[in-house]
Design a protein around this nucleic acid. Structure first.
Length: 485
DNA sequence: CGGTGGGACGATAGCGTCCCACCGGTGCTCTATT
């Protein structure tokens, strides 16, 4: 049994902190006494320490499941800066002899980072079984619920991974999860809800003002967007549900406002995406026009506004996206622009084209190639390979469709509210309504745009060789934003 | 659902209008060609 003073000793000596922050000791104690734990803490609250510290008290390695290679890279870099050398990242980059060597000596690593896809590879799994890890960490655990069923189904195989690792103690980490999502995460990992310790802190962000600006049509929305970007101090992010529009509006806003703007979406080259994120962090860009691809791992503290040009798919995504504002505690705003009919795009995006049962059956029996299943062929092939019957698969997807439609409806209900938006959001996240506060939402303060105590924008950085306008021209010249839409 | 691009058509020489089909987000890994 590990004692509390041993925990503090590691905290002082290894990490150089005097004391824990809210939720940290509770989580670490639960893990070290063998309890599976779900911890929900806001970004910046020190979630990495929750597994880094136990790693120095446990007898074997810690496996961390992460949805993005860039997130893993950040963690690996940070650990190496702290002087930790026993860190490895298992990705598709690691091939051939290097890969064999790493897998053969996997037990010498203290921190093993990997994607869910990599963890279900049979060679990796075999190596992991030899390691007998002491702790499995699921970072950004809401991805299991959000992405697992219809985008990255390997997330659902983590349940089997846990069994094969003899029910390894599991830590689930996220910044936002509704009660429904919490239950879903626990269930999809094959854990028993009643036996999982939950360390949950409020998702309320009192310094983020909430507003919905209703407009008549696309033209009015355009005008409102320009008005907001000219009025609100930056830096900021505008979210779109289409790559093309994100790119077009970035160009338009650069011209209209003279700000340093760049688009960001998954159709752009990795290097370009990396550069844009770096420039944004360094204040060389003041505004990003992005799809939902932008955000995870973006830890910029002084974001002043998040505007949504389109509806997000659900309130959980909305909360994650607006939660990127105001991490410095200063006044910030989240404005959702809504024109009648906007929900059409999002409802289309969340519609899965379901094949007929007959077609699925023929693919299952090998009479037809999975290609006949259309764009979602890999997804359906995955479930068939897992041994589900066509009927089971279709039933599950019908259920999923209802759930997605229901979640979108909740998002629309938020738009149409006639009472405090914050109370509604907090209720949705299973919390009591917060006590009244000065700057809350547009329904309490319709004239908010004139009265919010917004801090000034930081001066854009203009170091030598960091001229954003030249960068913009360069990007425009290669037309890469437009070609890859 | 709504925006957009292409083609047909009409009325008359360079272009407007209408209709229809199509598209729209998120990332990992592995494998076969340039």
């Amino acid at each position: 049994m590990i004692k509390t003073d041993q925990i503090y000793q590691v905290l002082h000596q290894r990490f150089g902190y005097q004391d824990f922050r809210d939720g940290q000791l509770e989580t670490i104690t639960a893990l070290l006494s063998g309890h599976d734990t779900l911890t929900i803490l806001p970004t910046g609250a020190g979630k990495s320490l929750l597994y880094q510290l136990p790693a120095y008290l446990l007898p074997s390695g810690v496996v961390i499941v992460s949805p993005l290679i860039s997130l893993m890279q950040d963690q690996v870099d940070r650990l190496r800066q702290q002087g930790e050398r026993r860190v490895i990242m298992l990705t598709g980059q690691l091939q051939g002899r290097d890969r064999r060597e790493v897998l053969n000596s996997l037990d010498q690593y203290r921190f093993i980072f990997a994607s869910p896809e990599m963890l279900t590879n049979s060679q990796v799994l075999q190596a992991l079984r030899r390691v007998r890890p002491s702790l499995l960490v699921v970072d950004e655990a809401h991805c299991i619920s959000q992405w697992g069923p219809d985008f990255r189904p390997e997330y659902l195989l983590l349940k089997q991974l846990r069994v094969q690792l003899s029910g390894v103690v599991t830590l689930m980490l996220t910044a936002t999860a509704t009660p429904q999502v919490r239950q879903d995460i626990i269930k999809k990992l094959g854990l028993d809800f009643d036996h999982v310790r939950q360390v949950i802190r409020s998702v309320n962000r009192p310094n983020i003002f909430l507003a919905v600006n209703r407009v008549e049509d696309a033209d009015a929305k355009q005008a409102e967007l320009v008005h907001l970007v000219k009025t609100l101090p930056g830096p900021g992010i505008i979210y779109f549900a289409s790559r093309k529009l994100a790119t077009q509006q970035a160009i338009m806003l650069a011209q209209e406002t003279g700000l340093a703007v760049a688009p960001y979406h998954a159709g752009m080259a990795a290097l370009e995406r990396f550069n844009i994120q770096q420039q944004f962090m360094a204040n060389q860009l003041q505004l990003i026009c992005a799809t939902s691809a932008f955000g995870m791992g973006v830890d910029k503290t002084d974001l002043r506004y998040i505007i949504h040009y389109h509806l997000p798919a659900n309130l959980a995504s909305y909360m994650q996206e607006i939660g990127r504002a105001g991490r410095d505690g200063q006044q910030s705003v989240a404005v959702l622009l809504y024109a009648p009919g906007d929900e059409g795009l999002q409802s289309q995006l969340t519609t899965i084209d379901l094949p007929s049962e007959a077609l699925l059956t023929q693919v299952q029996q090998g009479k037809l190639q999975p290609a006949v299943l259309g764009e979602q062929k890999e997804l359906f092939a995955f479930y068939l390979k897992q041994g589900y019957s066509p009927r089971q698969i279709l039933r599950a997807f019908h259920h999923r469709q209802h759930q997605l439609a229901f979640n979108l409806q909740k998002m629309l209900d938020y738009v149409g509210l006639d009472r405090c938006r914050r109370s509604y959001l907090l209720n949705y996240f299973g919390e009591e309504a917060a006590p009244g506060q000065d700057a809350c939402c547009d329904l309490d303060q319709p004239d908010w745009e004139r009265h919010l105590p917004m801090p000034a924008s930081p001066a854009p950085a203009k170091g030598p060789g960091l001229d954003w306008q030249a960068r913009l021209r360069e990007l425009l010249n290669v037309k890469s934003w437009l070609d890859k839409g």
